[in-house]
Write a protein that binds this DNA or RNA. Structure first.
Lengths: 233, 233
DNA sequence: CGCTACGTTGAGTGGCATCAAGCGCGGTGG
DNA sequence: CCACCGCGCTTGATGCCACTCAACGTAGCG
């Protein structure tokens, strides 16, 4: 079907993924990028912002993870199929297709890729645990502050910040589904953050006005991210 | 320091872990089992119930994962150190020590163990994502119902249910920190569940009175667990 | 027997949801 | 060109779910 890409015994890295992309496809916001079914390809987010999306039968939606450029959309789905989560585009997205065989050999992870796969899963686990703390124990205000601290750290690590600003591309409705609140309340909390001089969010673009104060409001400790991100950079 | 246990080229399985335990230690409830520092051993929960515990500076606590007998406490910490989560005993616990070298070779996962490590991390991710949906989008009542559905499935899979009952060993305060609510409200919700004939919880023991109704109240779909659990059983 | 942890219950409060209306904007088609 | 519409955002009014505070009963335990 497709060419098997040799890995030349090199350890797979996050940046090295791009060389494995065989074909790129473009998606408008709100489109579904990956369903639960596992196909012939792994999907690398080349640009844009995507979200891991869980739907309840009555329409409630929770986004359980944000996928940034350079990350894989469906690594988890390869390892554990039949999980009812899909990946949706939160902004205009470009997706790169990587042949499954470049990372997997039958159902096993190729040895050259194991460290990478483990690191990716570990990073996802770490971020998700922090989100659990947010949803369980932080107020809407703290939660919002914490999310933007996290996003700045992650986007800065991949060179996608512009000073203290960055484009998100996602709407307030999407933010609400990340933070477990309603879009109405997202609007109000953003207004408070702006009034307090911490953060401005408008036209899908965020500007951090006072980074120290924002971190303090969120009780943000970026250590949890640096560990996972640096180990295999 | 300690003997290196040969793995005889066999794939590591969850049950196979027990043969690697070199020493067992006993802990009272509320004791800290594992700190973030990674030591010479991996810790297998032999019996009891443990929780992955995140503390905020003002005392708020969120438990981001429950560890059941047969699971490893600190696999994640081996892969990504310096994460500020500790593992605490929620009931009396017996912990088995497994030499790090049985699973890791310097900082790499031993090839014979990679599938197991990946499966464990993937299972953790799956459960955690479902908890995010609970905390973000389900009411306290639904959340509680969903947790007990999940626990019954997981405990049943390892033969630790007794009909429709099972011992948890954890208090309502612990339940509150799992579910992101106060212990006062836990008490009230449990009373409602009992009045509705779905679930009884007393003396740290749960009895599911109407499994179908409980699943319906929680909109519970056990598929997400079966995948992860069966793959390497 | 006092102490501490756990659980229950009541009264009052508040954070966030819900409902509803209105605005601005970009896209689309007549 | 403009009417129209859908979408995103904002704002106000109202209500409820869950928190807070507080008191008390109970059980296990040193």
């Amino acid at each position: 079907m497709h060419t098997v890409v040799p890995l030349q015994r090199a350890t797979l890295t996050q940046t090295g993924l791009r060389t494995l992309v065989m074909r790129e496809r473009s998606f408008a916001a709100r489109k579904t990028l990956v369903d639960q079914a596992r196909g012939e390809h792994l999907h690398l987010l080349v640009s844009g912002l995507a979200g891991r999306c869980h739907l309840l039968s009555d329409g409630r939606r929770q986004i359980t993870g944000l996928i940034l450029p350079g990350e894989l959309c469906d690594l988890g789905a390869q390892v554990r199929p039949q999980v009812s989560a899909s990946v949706v585009a939160l902004s205009h997205c470009v997706l790169g297709e990587i042949p499954r065989s470049a990372v997997f050999e039958s159902d096993r992870v190729r040895p050259a890729c194991t460290q990478f796969v483990i690191a990716e899963l570990a990073r996802e686990t770490t971020v998700t645990a922090e989100w659990l703390v947010s949803l369980g124990r932080r107020s809407a205000y703290e939660r919002m502050a914490h999310l933007f601290c996290e996003l700045w750290t992650r986007l800065h690590a991949i060179g996608m910040t512009d000073g203290m600003s960055f484009d998100l591309g996602m709407t307030q409705v999407d933010l609400a589904d990340v933070l477990g609140m309603t879009s109405v309340h997202v609007s109000r909390v953003l207004k408070m953050l702006s009034k307090d001089g911490l953060l401005k969010f408008s036209a899908r673009r965020a500007t951090i006005l006072d980074h120290d104060a924002l971190c303090r409001a969120a009780a943000y400790e970026p250590a949890y991210l640096q560990a996972g991100l640096m180990q295999f950079a």
